[in-house]
Write a protein that binds this DNA or RNA. Structure first.
Lengths: 134, 134
DNA sequence: ATTATAATGATAATAATTATCATTAGGAGC
DNA sequence: GCTCCTAATGATAATTATTATCATTATAAT
């Protein structure tokens, strides 16, 4: 089967850039709203399509699913995340150092193939903590 | 507000046991099918309700979401997982040793509250690898 | 400019999960 | 045992994120 040739798309670029520019690890709808002003004829389906494709290509990664919504990250280098289970905020979490070596370690004595890993800390963020202090 | 008293429920027990007895890290529907023979009047809603509640209580944990379905684990002690991105199989993955100490490490210099973490390796399982070998 | 087809918009379809509400059952008190 | 309160449930409708469909548009090679 012939490999599909990939064409340039200004909307895909805009979606990619919007994702790269935020640290909120947004979902599809957030990105739709972010790019919509620049391309008023943007369709939500296009956002989903491109996110799915860029993810398959390894250009972006899926960080977590919160409240049934998939959340994305333009940074594909190894880094861990913190997710607040109260408000759903997701932050990069570099306090715990871990690089690709953990994948190599996992690969030893394993017959399958390790491609990547996710390390996600769950808890309550500072903001929600102070609100809960009743 | 009065704390809701929790009553015993034989169906909840059956769901919990079905989850404890498998190593497949199943989703709600799988558990529904597993418990249905024992309780023919079981409703899928009951499975969802109890999974949600036991998760909130910390009795079980959610391991990952694959193909839009949430997958559960009765084991709440720290252990990592491997998920095959081809077939969705999820296995315990103890090759990489990590205990609760990583949470303590993460907690240092962090103003929020760390509750737990998930470490999930993604890749292709041995079975799918051999099938792909064309 | 012509042409092939990748990408898109609009929307219908799908599917997992949640909400609703009338009914059933756990368990405390008698 | 029986009564009562209400947690738990079954059946099903509603919600909602995501995916599929298909006619139209845009990319880029010639």
């Amino acid at each position: 089967m012939q490999e599909k040739i990939r064409r340039f798309s200004r909307k895909r670029e805009a979606i990619r850039n919007a994702l790269a520019m935020t640290k909120t690890h947004p979902d599809a709808e957030w990105l739709y709203c972010a790019v919509k002003p620049q391309f008023p004829d943007l369709s939500l389906a296009t956002v989903y399509r491109n996110l799915c494709e860029m993810k398959k290509n390894g250009e972006i990664q899926s960080v977590a699913v919160f409240g049934g919504r998939e959340r994305f990250d333009a940074v594909t280098e190894n880094h861990s995340h913190f997710i607040c289970d109260k408000c759903g905020k997701i932050d990069d979490f570099d306090a715990v150092n871990h690089d690709g070596s953990i994948d190599k370690l996992a690969q030893e004595d394993f017959d399958g193939k390790i491609v990547y890993h996710t390390l996600v800390f769950h808890g309550v963020c500072p903001d929600c903590l102070s609100k809960t202090a009743d």
